[in-house]
Nucleic acid binder design. Structure first.
Lengths: 243, 243
DNA sequence: GCAAAAGTGTTCGCAGTACACCCATGA
DNA sequence: TCATGGGTGTACTGCGAACACTTTTGC
């Protein structure tokens, strides 16, 4: 309970309007070609059949994090996914129907793992970031903020592994970084930094689909990964970061 | 308007409980000695006369940013202060009286500028971060998150200038960095990086209070400062950041 | 044997670090 | 003249950047 203004401080109960509190999810995926976003076609008013982020209201006995996990699971069937609170959007006019605060989360999912059936129930589709449709309300702004955050965070912490399957090739990782930043990176320097980080472990098997020679699979060293998430590790050229 | 669950998608209006939405402010200041926090002694129930962050409810036609600015101004009399949304706290049990979502902001203020009178009205006091009292609800956690964010952000962007007056000495800036990170920094390297950033302009006047020789005042180059806030600039040793 | 992708090394330059002394002044 | 804090310079080194060729193998 908080005072609204100084003159109200003596009063025990303050006038305070309650509001709807929603959670919306910006869901990133990577299919080897481009970074994509999972959007749903709204099957309900207002703005029926427009594209939007997946969202829902926070339930009375549910934390924000739990609401976000629940909503993500509804759409993808996935639990335990990398997810982080992004920003709270609260412009009074953002939802024309009713005052609603939206706490936005972003998630990084292995696009191969999600349950396609669920997405079909929601008329969901993966859109490349370069070909996004117009979204309802302020969802475009949410996506913009999420993209900035992803670039920012991934420049300093190795979170992009979350977008790949458990076994991946260096080529896939490189392509991922290049599509997140829209820039070509030097393969040799990239690999060197990657290997010196000690985060990846080479497997015995090779991926043979995309080349004759075949490319070794790698796995993430999960211990090193967990402890490295808090420290700063970058596979990008420093000047990309420090401009 | 969002669906709560899939089964509700066909329904036009969904059951959704509204909640109180508050904004709390973590207000940092620096007095040349230590980094401090401005706390108020609650003059209202619950938890009357316990210490807490300054907060208030978001008004029906007010954005979150505006609510935060309003609340900060109520306590300090300051406008146009550096302020940033920190995090939304929404544990169902965080406020024992009623379900309340709190969107927390942190602010960096020039401690010499704030209106002491207003603070007295709220029974507010500046506390060194090392001597904080117990705070109500989850305000300790909010402060912890704010401290982490401040260290993180200031390691990459030159935001700590916001805590100093318009005219400052290098010594003050160095002391500030040292108190934010709780570490001693090499004066010569610090100055070199600072100067090579081109962010500060030496004034003609000297500060004569704390030494016989006197130390030049500097001012921030506001143009370079504005454009640099988005890029990465650090005056800290790289290994402090990249561990 | 050739096309296509995988994978590997070296050189150079600069930025970061460590480190110590002189300067100006008031008392 | 001395004590106090202000202010400057250098040498080293290690990391990041730029850059090109060899390897493997399926066709």
């Amino acid at each position: 309970m908080y005072p609204e203004t100084r003159s109200e401080m003596a009063v025990k109960h303050y006038r305070a309007d309650k509001m709807l509190v929603a959670v919306d999810c910006v869901i990133f995926g990577f299919d080897g070609e481009a970074l994509k976003l999972l959007l749903i076609k709204r099957g309900f008013e207002p703005q029926k059949s427009k594209w939007s982020l997946m969202g829902g209201f926070v339930q009375p006995k549910e934390s924000l994090d739990n609401a976000a996990s629940r909503i993500l699971e509804q759409l993808t069937g996935l639990k335990g996914v990398f997810m982080e609170q992004l920003f709270a959007f609260g412009d009074p006019a953002r939802d024309p129907m009713e005052r609603t605060i939206s706490v936005v989360y972003y998630a990084l999912v292995d696009i191969g793992q999600y349950k396609k059936q669920l997405s079909e129930d929601f008329h969901a589709e993966w859109f490349p970031l370069s070909e996004l449709p117009l979204l309802i309300f302020d969802h475009d702004q949410m996506v913009g903020t999420a993209r900035e955050r992803l670039q920012y965070k991934a420049a300093l912490h190795p979170i992009l592994f979350e977008l790949l399957p458990g076994r991946f090739t260096i080529r896939q990782l490189l392509d991922l970084y290049e599509s997140v930043y829209g820039k070509e990176l030097d393969k040799r320097n990239f690999i060197r930094k990657l290997q010196s980080s000690g985060l990846i472990i080479r497997q015995k098997e090779k991926e043979k689909g995309s080349s004759k020679k075949g490319a070794f699979y790698f796995k993430l060293d999960k211990r090193k990964y967990s402890s490295s998430l808090r420290s700063f590790i970058s596979f990008l050229p420093t000047k990309e970061i420090f401009q």
